[in-house]
Design a binder for these strands. Structure first.
Lengths: 333, 333
DNA sequence: CAGGTTCCTGCGAACGCTTGCACAGTTTGC
DNA sequence: GCAAACTGTGCAAGCGTTCGCAGGAACCTG
């Protein structure tokens, strides 16, 4: 036999037609018990793997999903990617991963290139204008993660409740003057987080200043650390864990002890948040769950396009108390 | 026009045959200048995207590569994945990513499922028996990362020189008794690292004990930290950065200051190595470079199967001095 | 036992593209 | 000025599947 096994080669060996072999795999209930088991046995023996291209040509489906993330090297995303892949695989789909580099143009180009090879798209923290994404969503199944756009299915991780608890936690430790270290101005998450902190602080009678925006990087956090040191605040709530880590790093360099002299907290609960010294008080983002949910929504939409409707799912993150926050101390500078 | 643009619809509009349109894209030198520009203009206007399934059916190629990693959530891999994806995209390929969960069985299943949908495979730190991988490599282009198997193209990150420099560095700081905190026994990298440390220590007249093996996790590092505390060594070289971080964490918990009382170093230079307190002395693994190289080798093999030959590339990692190693102090316990 | 069902199977078209071959028209070589 | 070579294009086969339709066999039903 030359080349890999095909329906045809199996059909010849089994003495049936190609269609019967095809149906043995795709519509098993349609064919005779005995015929089917025989076909399956032969297929197994010759290691038959259906030709996805041929199948895709006629069905118009690739059983592949596209997953766009800003940057897989950003520690926030790997758990999402991991969960999304696992779920997709469980449900019979493969995942093509691409990095947009946080750049709307590249995002656009990737989506264009990708759309010919996937059945649907998961867009994580997309940077493209809402109108463009809405337009895209009319052309093919699409779900956004961590960006809410009216008319587009999305799953967002809300840290509102968790941040509320965090602010309460700071209050109970005696803090009255805190700062929020803002992330990128264009970020949906930053807006949500900033507002959550403000709201709870107001409720608790605490004063909160916003510092930044800072890049959502360690270096951004270093910058923020300087600003915190220069402020009168006794606690800082950072946009995310990486920024918090940078801030803590800088504060330590400047001789300010965390949490003895100043408290710092992050957001996301990335892999390393529990491994640093001090360990990082933070609000966990259920990012893996979000990845799974996004894939489920996408495949559901693919499987039953008729009954599909726009959904907006919100997943809540929980407050995680660790070592980088403590009782307020009088700052001595 | 119903459905997406096809060669046929473009051909009709341009008043030429389907073959001519096809050639305008794939063999532009074969057709008339004027015809070509006209076709390209129409294609551009209608947003033509070739149907990959149809193309794949006749060419037998998917222009997709498979990338298997043990666990994308392990901070060692994201830079590799990122670089591999970027390079593949540059060269016109997409990448399907899958996680083996460090499990040989799952690895095998994934490879089987994947092989129908990709042109070639990059296997990172594969756990499967060498014979199985060698067999696989005869069936389709394949390159291994961080595992050297005779007869299989591979790219490995060697930390030998870097670890040699690290051991020298420890010696010059006065250390004479060190320990190596071993990683998983089945790991190719662990063997290489252990031997490198041993060799250099012997050369430098230092005593080195091997502790472990420990799981290559933070918790593994915590375990290792206890063992280090109980040993007489003044410096520890950990299998990787995560283990080092765990060890430092545990040592600090036990009141041993790093690096004042004991030095600890890691390996890999992951994202966080420079962000911890203390910052982590380590040996950088050129993992992104390895990802790029692997993709290049794979696509080269795909593009010119005739002149292809087995290659084994080794990339060297450099020693990075940071804050977790320091002058030897008399241990007081 | 005629007519209707049900169950299983085969036939053949179609999916969108690439590519070997043929051919008409033009250029080149001597 | 005629054969040879070259250039640009079209024809049609074929890639491996899926699936609508048709039909034969077996089984009911009254």
């Amino acid at each position: 036999m030359s080349g890999p096994a095909s329906l045809k080669s199996i059909a010849e060996e089994a003495g049936v037609s190609v269609s019967t072999v095809s149906r043995a795999f795709t519509r098993p209930e349609l064919i005779g018990e005995q015929t089917r088991t025989e076909i399956l046995a032969i297929a197994e023996r010759v290691g038959y793997q259906p030709n996805r291209s041929a199948r895709g040509l006629v069905t118009g489906r690739t059983t592949t999903l596209g997953l766009l993330v800003p940057d897989i090297a950003n520690p926030f995303f790997p758990p999402l990617v991991r969960a999304a892949e696992d779920r997709a695989y469980e449900r019979g789909y493969g995942v093509m991963l691409m990095d947009t580099d946080e750049h709307a143009d590249r995002e656009k180009a990737l989506i264009r290139d990708l759309s010919g090879r996937v059945d649907g798209l998961v867009l994580c923290s997309p940077r493209s204008p809402a109108g463009q994404i809405r337009e895209l969503a009319t052309q093919r199944p699409l779900v956004c993660v961590n960006r809410s756009i009216s008319g587009v299915t999305s799953v967002c991780c809300s840290t509102r409740d968790g941040l509320g608890q965090l602010v309460q936690h700071l209050r109970s430790l005696g803090h009255r003057k805190i700062v929020y270290l803002a992330g990128p101005a264009s970020s949906w998450s930053d807006r949500e987080r900033r507002n959550s902190v403000r709201r709870q602080a107001a409720k608790s009678g605490m004063q909160v200043d916003v510092l930044g925006p800072y890049p959502a990087t360690f270096e951004g956090g270093v910058l923020a650390g300087d600003a915190v040191a220069d402020s009168a605040a006794t606690a800082a709530v950072a946009f995310d864990d990486v920024v918090a880590l940078g801030a803590i790093h800088r504060l330590s360099e400047r001789g300010l002890r965390v949490p003895d002299q100043i408290s710092v907290s992050g957001c996301d609960d990335i892999f390393f948040a529990s491994m640093t010294l001090p360990t990082l008080t933070t609000v966990a983002t259920p990012i893996a769950e979000a990845g799974r949910a996004a894939i489920d929504l996408l495949i559901d939409a693919l499987d039953s396009p008729k009954e599909h409707r726009i959904q907006e799912i919100t997943l809540s993150g929980a407050f995680v108390a660790r070592g980088s926050t403590g009782r307020m101390a009088r700052r001595t500078r």
